[in-house]
């Protein structure tokens, strides 16, 4: 795994990535300006929000929707938009409120 302390002689040539699917090792959830908030009361665990998420940030286990992984979520709002029960809503991210 590369880091930005490594020099030219240590880094893989030409930025090649030799570990497939290594994005789970990175915190890519820093770009949000709105965050989805999951309301456990309203959620019927229909799983409609699972497939559309571009970042696999909507989490589930054993048929139960378990919440949002904020280290991956970019705040696109698709989950909130597809939820038939309005169990996910978007809130402003930090700073503004």
């Amino acid at each position: 795994m590369v880091n930005d302390k490594m020099g030219a002689s240590e880094l893989p040539l030409a930025g090649i990535i030799t570990e497939s699917g290594n994005s789970e090792k990175f915190n890519t959830g820093e770009w949000r300006n709105k965050r989805p908030v999951h309301d456990k009361e309203k959620c019927k665990h229909c799983m409609m929000c699972i497939l559309p998420c571009p970042d696999n940030a909507t989490c589930h286990k054993d048929g139960v929707m378990t919440g949002i992984d904020y280290s991956k979520c970019k705040g696109c709002g698709i989950c909130a938009s597809v939820c038939p029960f309005k169990a996910i809503h978007m809130e402003d991210e930090g700073g503004n409120d």
Binding site: V2, D4, L11, A14, G15, I16, I17, T18, E19, S20, G21
Partner: peptide, 12 residues
């Protein structure tokens, strides 16, 4: 499994 030609910004 490799990826080639990824985005390469200021720090790399």
């Amino acid at each position: 499994h490799v990826s080639m030609g990824p985005l390469d910004l200021q720090n790399y």
